[in-house]
Structures are given as structure tokens and as C-alpha cells.
Amino acid sequence: MKILQVENLHKSFGHLEVLKGIDMEVMQGEVVTIIGRSGSGKSTLLRCINFLEQPTHGKVMVDGLSVIVERHKLSRDQKQSIHEIRLRTGMVFQEFNLFPHLSVIENLIEAPVIVKRMKKKEAIGIAEMYLDKVGMSAKRNEFPNRLSGGQKQRVAIARALTMQPKVMLFDEPTSALDPELIGEVLEVMRQLADDGMTMLVVSHEMSFAHDVSHRVVFMEEGIIAEEGPPEQLLDDPKNPKTRMFLQRIIGEKQEE
């Protein structure tokens, strides 16, 4: 069953066309990693799915709810659908974006209580379950500024999960982390994938792309240049641009 679909999606910032017609489908339980150099539009694509950026035109469908954008002004119905889509998608940011004025547990229950009008007690129950899942139960009452980057990101993942989304969007979740902290976040993401969560991940972590994802999408200059199973795309890319991109990464690794 396809749970996420993007059709002919375009996004321009002024004269700069960042997405030039993206078509993509993600099946329930599928883990898709999007790779590509910076500026290729991969983050913008992710941000168009939950409308942090409003697409210039095109269609977004999440869990049966679709929004077709044709012009800038959105109708009331479209806005309602966007809200529903946001409730069905969880997003994890590069910079964590935990709320610094709230403790860890408060960060988690804020949206369920305020947005979903869930009872506080019930929200805490769900939040504690996910905190446990990401191994952060011990820091339940800490404030974000007392946590390491890896811990912050794990809390951010738990925060998104507490809204019980159908799809998780990860926007370069390990790019802001010190190298020694990347592992713990990837481990949490791998577990999430094993649990059957549908995940769309923008990342430079080739190990994750290769070992965890079911499919890898390579983006270049606002279009999907190539996609396929990780073994094929990473080990035997057909598109010369993909080959060049991967070659460059290997080059960087060797220089290090």
C-alpha cells in the first residue's frame, strides 16, 4: 500500500527553481534514503511534503490525504488537509529544534496535549514509551541544554513519534552531530526501521543508506536522477551523475 506520494512537484524560490517536477511513491513500511549534493533540492522536497515549504505546484499525498497545489493562495479545505498531513508525518531536523523552555517530557507531550487535545496522563504514558525506545528515560526531567547532541536528536525523534505519525521525515538528522555521536542516533533510526515505520531520510550517511534503507533516491538539480535498491544504486549506479557523486564521496573519505 502506498502511503506517501508526490506527483509533478515543483518549488521555486523567486526565480530559482529548486524542484523541477518530482514524482515519488513510498510504500507503507518502506525506508527510503534520499542522497545528493547540497543544493540538489532533497531537503526542500522533504519540507514540501509537510508544507514547511509550500510547493509552487504539484500534488502531495500522505495516508490517503492529498493536497493539489495550483496557485499560491490555499483554500480552507487545503489548509485543513495540510494540517491533517502534518499530524500524520513526524519530522526530525538537523538542528534538533527541541523547545529549550520545556523539559524532555514536556517537549514530548506538548503537541499531543495542545494539538490533539489528549489527556495529559495519556500523553505522558505514550511519551514515556517512546523515551524508553530511544533510551532516554533517565533524562525525562532534564532540560534540552543539558543534553549532548546525540541525546537531543534521540529526544527529538521520540517527540515526533509521540504524535504517532504514519510517516517519519528525517532532514539530515546526523549532520549537526560530532562524529562520535552519530552512531547512537543511527541505531535508534535502525530500530525504528525494524519496527516497520515508514521513513523518508535525507542523509549523507552511506552506511544507513546501504544497510537500512530499502531504496535509495539520488537527486541532482531538482530532479530524481536515479533510484533503486541500495546495492544497485550505490554499488553499480547507471547514471554517470550518480557515479560522479559517489566517486566524490569516496575521494573525500580517502583524503581524511
Partner: peptide, 20 residues
């Protein structure tokens, strides 16, 4: 980033301003 996190969690503009 704070605003985006709030919006991504489904908050309305008013909820985001008031709570975050």
C-alpha cells in the same frame, strides 16, 4: 527552527506563538 518544529508538530500559528 523553533517555529518550524512547532508547525511540523501540527500547531496552528496561534498555538505556536502562545506555547513556543
Amino acid at each position: 527552527g523553533q517555529r518550524e518544529a512547532a508547525i511540523a508538530l501540527g500547531m496552528t500559528h496561534g498555538q505556536m506563538m502562545r506555547r513556543i
